[in-house]
Design a protein around this nucleic acid. Structure first.
Lengths: 308, 308
DNA sequence: CTTAGGCTATGATTCAAACTCATTATCCTC
DNA sequence: GAGGATAATGAGTTTGAATCATAGCCTAAG
């Protein structure tokens, strides 16, 4: 009983637990270790003298008491967040423009809903996408032509650029259910050699499967390109070749049996996304909030995505 | 900028600041030092990069940002408190009876409103007052005839009794505005020697002015007794004698000029009130909450009362 | 039955936040 | 300009919230 009291930190934890369904996943989302959450939860439970969650069932289940506190978290945390935004607005006069440079086509799929959500919270921010599909958007930050860039690797530490992790996704190979490779549990680089690879019309460097798998293996399959994700999927479904896309883009098509997905490599091909800002941008809270929002929104909405 | 985030603790502080009007008073209420609040506030302000309060004016004033956070505190803390109560209810089955033993007549004046507030929060608790006006109510706790006692001194540490501070009040001397002693800025024990002292009909030990001032000085004035506070005040107003009552009981009568009040002794006569429970009772959260509620309610509602 | 893999628990340790203490500074009032 | 209340500051201490490394537990598969 007693000792340290309830704090907002605990409510954040409960919320993350509810959304992730396990201590370890929630820990990753909160940028903490699993051990930290275990200790924290134990302290809370001994504070109330009762269990808050049942952990021997997956996903973990909340007890009645846990549910009550979870309800509190759901009620209170949005209010706190809103107050935080209001304070940020009051503190730093007006917000500036927020131009987001994206590297890849895929990003549109998840960025759009996040941007809509953000716009309703920060109506006064001028939010734009810069979609030049440049290979390296970082110079845009240096030149002051963008405030934020979405990129794949926090490469060699630049002087004035700060990287914030967004999330990790898996690129999966897609093919017709009747495709000969559909019989394999996973695809190796060699499997692509004699196939037609269907991609966006961008340089190889910007294609996950090429950059991290085929190019290193010295394999360069035939190509066919399409601008839109749906067009690529149509081509795949009709057996014109195979594609490699993030797993979350294709949920519907798989459910309906139009295409099947297979991991690339025995472990699957994981890719990490980061947000890059200038040092100044990382200070501005309307930019910090954009990063936090896109991150949590993606983690909850996108299937097969995990925290970094 | 940045570093540690907002926590409920900070909201508690802001609320206390708003109610007390100064760092040091708020600190006393929160059982912290003035230094702690100063540091805490400074950390908060550097977190937001802006001032939250103007401290060079009394009572201190909130900035726009401070007001926004204060509004958050007012919105959020009650929700947290209610969740806490719900959890306590869920955790420990049903609440038991709560019999409060009071030592003094005065206590009724502030206890009644607090009890009303408590009843609406904990409807299932059977709340009663035991008003035997015993000199020492502690044995009632031992014998299990009361769960809580309101007493004046946390006397020699009993084995199984726990004391929680409630508040400090001032006992003031009351007399007709035309009384000869009304000319003095404060009254000494000797001033009482030739007066008629109007009191409740209880033993001397239970009268602040006797126990802490007159009896030690060997002075024992004539007496006249009345059961009700209003009756005492009527007698005083009509010049039948002087009385000594807690300062908060007499606000109206002084405002209307019926009576005047003077400190007893050069520093005034301060008395402390404590809640006493058994060890078991101190664990039960419906009892802890009763203590916390009466304390804060008294501190905010009663004039001239301060934290301990 | 055993083993492997995903989760969780635990104890030791580290580290920093938050508090207290003692003192100094500021401000208001007389 | 002295005195009293209030706040700020810096040093020092305590506390508790993390991490790390490791052990335990459960389920499912061989």
């Amino acid at each position: 009983m007693s000792s340290t009291a309830l704090e907002l930190r605990h409510l954040e934890t409960l919320l993350a637990l509810a959304e992730c369904g396990s201590l370890s996943k929630a820990a990753a989302r909160l940028f903490l270790t699993q051990s930290a959450l275990s200790h924290q939860l134990k302290a809370l439970e001994s504070h109330y003298g009762a269990a808050l969650v049942e952990k021997n069932v997956r996903p973990l289940r909340f007890t009645a008491i846990g549910q009550r506190l979870l309800a509190l978290a759901r009620a209170v945390l949005p209010q706190v967040a809103e107050a935080g935004r209001d304070v940020a607005r009051l503190a730093q006069g007006h917000a500036g423009p927020l131009r987001v440079a994206v590297q890849c086509h895929n990003c549109f799929d998840w960025l759009m809903p996040a941007m809509d959500a953000y716009r309703s919270l920060w109506p006064e921010v001028e939010l734009d996408i810069i979609s030049g599909f440049v290979v390296d958007p970082l110079p845009l930050l240096d030149r002051g032509e963008a405030e934020l860039a979405i990129i794949h690797d926090p490469r060699e530490a630049r002087p004035n650029v700060i990287f914030s992790p967004l999330f990790r996704y898996e690129s999966v190979a897609l093919m017709s259910p009747r495709h000969r490779l559909a019989a394999k549990p996973w695809l190796s680089a060699a499997d692509f050699a004699d196939e037609t690879l269907i991609t966006y019309p961008v340089p190889d460097e910007m294609l996950d499967v090429m950059k991290h798998c085929l190019t290193p293996a010295g394999i360069n399959p035939k190509r066919r390109t399409a601008e839109l994700t749906v067009a690529i999927l149509q081509l795949v479904a009709s057996g014109r070749g195979i594609a490699a896309l993030p797993s979350w883009t294709v949920g519907n098509y798989i459910d309906r049996g139009y295409v099947v997905s297979r991991p690339i490599g025995p472990e699957g091909l994981r890719c990490d996304l980061y947000a890059a800002t200038t040092g100044a941008g990382a200070e501005a809270s309307y930019i910090k909030e954009f990063i936090a929002l896109t991150r949590t929104q993606s983690l909850t909405e996108l299937a097969g995505v995990s925290a970094l």
